[in-house]
Simulated scan of single mutants.
Amino acid sequence: MVLRWYQSKLAKRPLLTQAVTTAVLFGAGDTLAQQAVERKGFRNQDVARTGRMVLYGGCVFGPAATKWYGFLQKRINLRSHNATIAARVAADQTVFATINLGVFLSSMALMEGSDPKAKLEKSYFQGLKANWAIWPAVQAINFKFVPLEHRVLIVNIVSLGWNCFLSYLNSSK
């Protein structure tokens, strides 16, 4: 029933649906980071931090990922299906992942009122190494088995844990 409702929203307004879904799951990832990893307790939940994650997920990552996956689907098509998947993963990890991590850390720094350059120097390469340990395999499976309209959703589901890590990485002193 929920999947049918989601499918109908996705068919009518794909960008908006994926942006809202991403916003919710980015917020959930941050809450998971604060409650399960940092063990802050709900009274000490940093609501502004969660709000920043929701804003980034809904306004930046969701729309960007939706357009990016459409671009990959349209522009990277080789003779072999497996070569196409490998080329899409390579493009995703060398272009999108590297840029997105920089934009994420920089925008979080700006919203927090701190120095983006310092945040990038402190966290970028640690985050990128963690990204490359997880996401190439996830994206290979995503590009091989998941229809285009559901790829952002799959990334968002896997991102519950990833966003928990990103939120922790961003907030670590």
Rank of each mutant, 00 (worst) to 15 (best):
S106I: 02
G161F: 11
A28F: 14
Q73A: 01
L3Y: 14
V2H: 14
K144T: 03
F104D: 00
E38R: 14
R79C: 01
L78K: 07
P116K: 07
D115R: 13
V37F: 02
A109H: 10
V95S: 14
I157L: 14
Y56N: 06
L25E: 03
R13Q: 05
N163F: 11
L120V: 11
Y69R: 01
N170K: 15
K173Q: 13
D92C: 05
A11W: 08
L16H: 04
G57T: 10
S123A: 14
K67Y: 05
F96C: 06
H150Q: 01
L110H: 06
E112M: 10
M111Y: 10
D46P: 13
Q7I: 10
V146M: 00
P147K: 07
D115H: 09
G62S: 05
L3W: 14
G58H: 04
I157R: 11
Y6G: 05
Y69K: 02
A109T: 10
A11Q: 12
R43K: 14
A140M: 00
D30L: 05
G29R: 00
F71W: 11
C164P: 03
I157G: 08
V20I: 15
Q126I: 11
G51C: 09
V95K: 07
C164A: 14
K119P: 00
T50V: 13
S80L: 02
Y56P: 03
L55P: 02
R52P: 03
K144N: 02
S159F: 10
K173W: 00
G41T: 10
R52F: 07
G161V: 09
F42P: 08
K74P: 01
L148P: 00
S80A: 06
N44R: 15
G62K: 03
A109F: 12
L10C: 05
A23K: 09
E112H: 14
S172E: 11
S8R: 15
V24L: 15
F71S: 04
A19N: 05
H150M: 06
L10I: 05
W135Q: 03
T66F: 06
K144C: 01
Y168S: 04
T17V: 04
R43A: 10
Q35F: 13
N156C: 10
P63T: 02
L25R: 07
I99Q: 05
A90L: 11
F42W: 15
T84N: 02
S159I: 07
A86D: 00
I154C: 06
V2G: 13
W162S: 08
F26A: 03
L25W: 10
N142Q: 07
S114P: 12
G41S: 12
N163Y: 13
Q18W: 08
V54T: 12
Y124P: 13
T21R: 06
A65S: 09
R88H: 00
L15A: 03
I76V: 09
L148T: 02
A11T: 12
R151N: 03
A97D: 02
Y124I: 04
D46V: 07
G27K: 07
Q126P: 00
S123H: 12
K117G: 03
F71Y: 12
M53N: 08
Q34R: 12
L15M: 08
T94W: 10
Q126T: 14
L166W: 08
G113A: 11
Q73G: 02
E121L: 15
G58E: 00
M108Y: 12
D30Q: 13
